[in-house]
Design a protein around this nucleic acid. Structure first.
Lengths: 227, 227
DNA sequence: AGGAAACTTGAAACCTGGTTCATGTTTCAA
DNA sequence: TTGAAACATGAACCAGGTTTCAAGTTTCCT
């Protein structure tokens, strides 16, 4: 039906089976009520896709359940067959998208490359992804206020992943040996803000490669004048 | 009464006179209705301080006007003597705080120093400020959804300021000559995320100086292994 | 084929909290 | 001192959106 829909579909056939496993509180283990028939799965998917559009376009509070069901082409009451509340579907969406970002990054890092090269590739992929799915950006960001736990989890996981790469690079002697968590967060912040400025706000004035090259170069040499 | 209050007071005697000048739309020129008596100014200040606490603690949508007036010790109706709506006071607050962050940075950069040194000092000051005023952080962040115009303005201004410093450093031969806007945004993103992780979330586990040293070092040399 | 469980439906109950307003009180300049 | 403008008050109004529910319809297993 649209970009978001196809993007959600691309994630995998059963995104919710992924979601249900990694939750801390047992009570919140399942954000969505599991459908038991094919028809149910279809409706659930329609609701999630519609919610991505509605939340992305109007933000959590401006968005309305009836807006979601209208876009999904289902009755208002059906919503509550699958989600306990507006917050619940938002949470499901955030975790779904967090996963999607992760997958996109993993794909970009599939083949081996020098450590600095990998960071540049990761940023390029992220910028492309952000430009393609601005709603994702917005929804994850808004989670800071609507669902802080998921927000925190998203960035802590992402940061840990970057740190892993840095350590790997250090092990191979390509990066400094003293890199720690703060370095990973610095890089992550860099990436996120460049994404906001050039992928989400920018009208494509600077291509992803160029921005990624600048950041990569900054990581490689710093900004001091050559001695 | 509390940290926020004193922080607001420190900004200057008439923060609102500053606010009223730089608005694009003429309609929204004055976010707050100017009080004409001393009593009025006191009430306005009380409302703003209370709003900072209420919004900081509960977020925009959880926050309620009655919560604000209760904290301020005024009647519900009085609110509308000074602000047209919930959005209006939020906007006033965001611009006020954006200004406050700016001022804090300016103070930290008062005396001259080498360019790289200055960036480190700016980050240290920012981290201290963020730790001291976590509400500020939260409120400015939430502006992305409640008052996007102010949000954008805040970061564009901040980014431009950083770029100025970079250009100045390049002029003096201390920094590379090819620095551009993207570098400034990369540094800004770095700073913001380090602030989120270590000043706002962190329980002070890493001191501001240490985090700033890491970032400063990253800017100076990059993360590649020494050749 | 048959029936229980899964799912759908949309009108209406229900809440919550922003906003208004008519009535008082305080300020302050003349 | 005085009165007009500024400011304070809080009960009541009201809009909008979430959530419920009782009555169907569809699925799917045996």
């Amino acid at each position: 039906m649209n970009q978001v829909s196809s993007f959600l579909l691309r994630i995998g056939v059963t995104p919710f089976s992924q979601l249900s496993m990694d939750t801390g509180t047992p009570a919140a283990a399942d954000t969505a009520k599991q459908p038991r028939t094919e028809r149910g799965r279809r409706t659930l998917r329609k609701l999630l896709d519609a919610a991505a559009v509605e939340f992305g376009e109007r933000g959590f509070h401006e968005a309305s359940i009836s807006g979601i069901t209208a876009r999904a082409g289902t009755a208002l009451g059906s919503f509550y067959t699958y989600f306990e509340s507006k917050e619940a579907i938002f949470q499901a969406l955030v975790r779904d998208m967090s996963e999607a970002v992760k997958v996109a990054a993993r794909e970009a890092l599939a083949e081996p490359a020098p450590a600095l090269e990998r960071e540049r590739a990761a940023l390029t992929a992220f910028l492309r992804f952000a430009a393609e799915h601005k709603e994702v950006y917005r929804i994850i960001d808004e989670a800071e206020f609507v669902d802080p736990e998921s927000y925190r989890q998203h960035y802590e996981t992402t940061g840990a992943r970057i740190l892993d790469r840095l350590r790997e690079g250090a092990r191979k002697g390509e990066l400094r040996a003293d890199l720690e968590e703060a370095h990973a967060w610095a890089i992550m912040g860099m990436n996120v803000f460049l994404g906001l400025r050039y992928a989400v706000w920018g009208e494509g004035d600077l291509p992803a490669e160029h921005v990624a090259a600048i950041a990569g170069d900054l990581l490689a040499k710093g900004i001091a004048a050559d001695r």
